[in-house]
Amino acid sequence: MKNMGLKSFKRKAAALCLSFALVLGTLLTPVAAYAAATNPATELDGELSPIYQGSVGDCGAISAIQALDNSIYGKGLLKTMITVNSNKTYTLNFGSGKVTVTQKEVDAAHVTGDLDARVIEVALQKTMNVYNGVFACDVFTRMTGFKQKTSYGGSSKKSTINALAAKFASGQGAMAACDFTIADPSKGIIGDGGHSYSIRWVDEEIVVLINPWDTSKLIYMSRNQFENSIRYMTYVDESAKRVVVYWD
């Protein structure tokens, strides 16, 4: 019976992964993705290519930056977030206020890969000291200017996950992140709240995560495992202009 259950789960997972890929590939791919290619490591393009956190402990910031790429709303924010100034500086148009960084500061960024992400990380460091650790929810608040709405335990967990699933099912996607109490080394999941992950997809069966150490790779887990092992999750509710935060 256990083998039959495992086979059934694998069949469901394969089908749902295909559905996940089709929805995100079709609905969340910006028109600019079909334009002439640029080098995302050296040119700003208002999009995110793979990024790599590096050696400092700003996983909360990097997971929040990556989460911009997981929703239509986040992609829109990213398109207008960075202004290039004539004196070769960059102004970040955060919802909570503008901040300007220099090219020298960007060159010293710890995150590697996409230039847009490096500019954003440096601006967040300048305003929030993210290299010493930060929660993704606070980065979402900085980016959007939205206030936070926090809930704890009980039925709030299921309702928060259901809200995320509905956002992904609608094709809008979600700017979302989480961390875990229970580790799963086989998936690269660190427990005890030791690492932040962005949430790429949620439905009734599957949750897909991205590790900020290498955002080119996806982590798949059952929704049941996700519900039983998370410590905290957060997402941007753009319609209510709130950053939703859940603590177990």
Rank of each mutant, 00 (worst) to 15 (best):
T144I: 09
G145N: 05
F146S: 03
F146C: 04
K147D: 09
K147T: 14
T150W: 05
S151C: 12
Y152I: 10
G154N: 07
S155C: 07
S155V: 13
S155L: 08
S156K: 03
K157Y: 15
K157R: 15
K157Q: 14
K158S: 11
K158M: 07
S159T: 12
S159C: 08
I161E: 01
A163F: 05
A163Q: 12
A165H: 14
A166L: 11
A166M: 08
A166Q: 12
G171E: 14
G171P: 10
Q172L: 15
A174S: 13
A174L: 06
A176D: 13
A176I: 04
A177R: 06
T181C: 06
T181E: 11
I182F: 03
A183S: 05
A183K: 05
A183T: 03
P185Q: 11
K187G: 01
G188N: 02
I189H: 00
I189R: 00
G191F: 08
G191S: 08
G193W: 03
G194T: 04
G194N: 04
H195E: 02
H195I: 01
Y197H: 02
Y197N: 00
S198W: 03
V202I: 10
D203N: 15
D203E: 06
E204L: 14
E205W: 12
E205T: 09
V207E: 11
I210V: 15
I210Y: 01
I210D: 01
I210N: 06
N211Q: 09
